[in-house]
């Protein structure tokens, strides 16, 4: 207990603080750099988003989106200008070619992550946006290409937004807001906006999902009343604006006369019409592997004590499916 002890202690503290790469100081610097990069990438996303809507971003809108003080925003803009990521003309901010490429990279990362989290990790839809926002900053271009290939080059994220290709082309978002839809008759939900999260949660809570066929029963300034033929859904107009719809594609017309496999009565033969669009990734591959392809004849043969799962006879083999999965296979009863 003397000088040597204290010297040793100080020495250890110094080493712990200043060790390259793993020391406290170095770790803090890495952390700061990551923070800055994330902020910059969020700013790029905001600019790209505005550009797609045909509006210009401004320091105010940027400060609002990133939730940081104005002083910091000016600093950020200056940094990004020196890196040749954006140009400011007066209060209008514009992406440079380099900035746009980077922004597309981040958007691609975000939407691929969302696809992965939904299809492979089977995370609930309400959670994927936040998780993807945390993960979008960490992948390199090559890693993204690998992820893209592993997912089978998906074209849209689980909300219906187009995923930028590796060359950097970004398709236009499909459909129009529900509030702008004027035509009569059924339509198809092609996009659910995930921001703000509160509105998205209301959409999910109402029970609406991507790919669903709906019809407007009634609309007024208070609420929208929608139906899919069985259930009625209510949405506030502000929330309804976050739901985009488009005209029915051919496949949906076929689905209109079909029923879910889960509702088939015992031993009733039926022909598979289509697998629901909501089934993607792992589950869809599994279904296809088992031979549950359109046109196949199938019928429920065996019931569990509790009615779930049921076993279906298909192509001579017996395959058990849980109710919620059988609800995603559309069939047409045959005699």
């Amino acid at each position: 207990m003397n000088i040597t002890f204290w010297l040793l202690l100080v020495l250890i503290l110094l080493v712990v603080t200043f060790l390259p790469r793993v020391g406290l100081f170095a770790v803090y610097k890495i952390y700061r750099a990551a923070q800055e990069r994330e902020q910059m990438e969020d700013a790029l996303k905001h600019l790209l988003d505005r550009e797609q809507q045909g509006r210009h971003a401004s320091p105010e809108s940027l400060a609002g989106t990133l939730d940081i003080p104005r002083g910091n925003v000016m600093q950020l803009i200056e940094n990004m200008e020196t890196q040749d990521l954006l140009e400011s003309r007066g209060v209008e901010l514009q992406l440079t070619t380099k900035g746009q490429r980077w922004a597309l990279h981040v958007v691609r990362a975000h939407r691929l992550w969302e696809r992965y989290l939904t299809d492979e990790a089977r995370m609930p839809l309400a959670k994927i946006h936040g998780e993807a926002s945390r993960r979008e900053h960490s992948l390199t271009e090559a890693q993204l290409n690998d992820l893209d290939a592993a997912l089978g080059h998906p074209t849209r994220d689980p909300h219906g937004d187009p995923i930028p290709t590796r060359e950097g082309t970004l398709l236009k978002a499909e459909g129009m807001p529900l509030t702008a839809w004027q035509a009569e008759g059924p339509m198809r939900i092609v996009h659910l906006e995930d921001e703000p999260a509160l509105a998205f949660e209301q959409i999910l809570a109402a029970g609406l999902r991507l790919g669903q066929t709906i019809r407007i029963l009634d609309r007024n300034s208070q609420r929208y009343l929608l139906t899919d033929g069985e259930t009625e859904y209510r949405l506030a107009p502000a929330v309804a604006a976050n739901v985009s719809v488009a005209a029915l594609p051919e496949s949906e017309v076929a689905k209109a006369s079909a029923i879910p496999l889960a509702e088939l009565t015992h031993n009733q033969r039926a022909e598979i019409v289509i697998l629901d669009d909501a089934v993607q990734g792992f589950t869809r591959r599994r279904f296809l592997d088992l031979g549950l392809t359109p046109g196949t004849v199938i019928y429920p043969e065996l019931k569990n004590f509790f009615g779930d799962p049921r076993a279906y006879r298909v192509r001579g083999t017996l395959i058990a499916l849980r109710k919620d999965q059988a609800a995603q296979i559309w069939v047409k009863p045959v005699l």
Binding site: A121, F282, R286, F287, L302, A311, T317, R322
Partner: peptide, 14 residues
Amino acid sequence: LKGEASAFTLELPP
């Protein structure tokens, strides 16, 4: 291990 149940598919062989 949070998340929705994955695909439950079970073959019942003869």
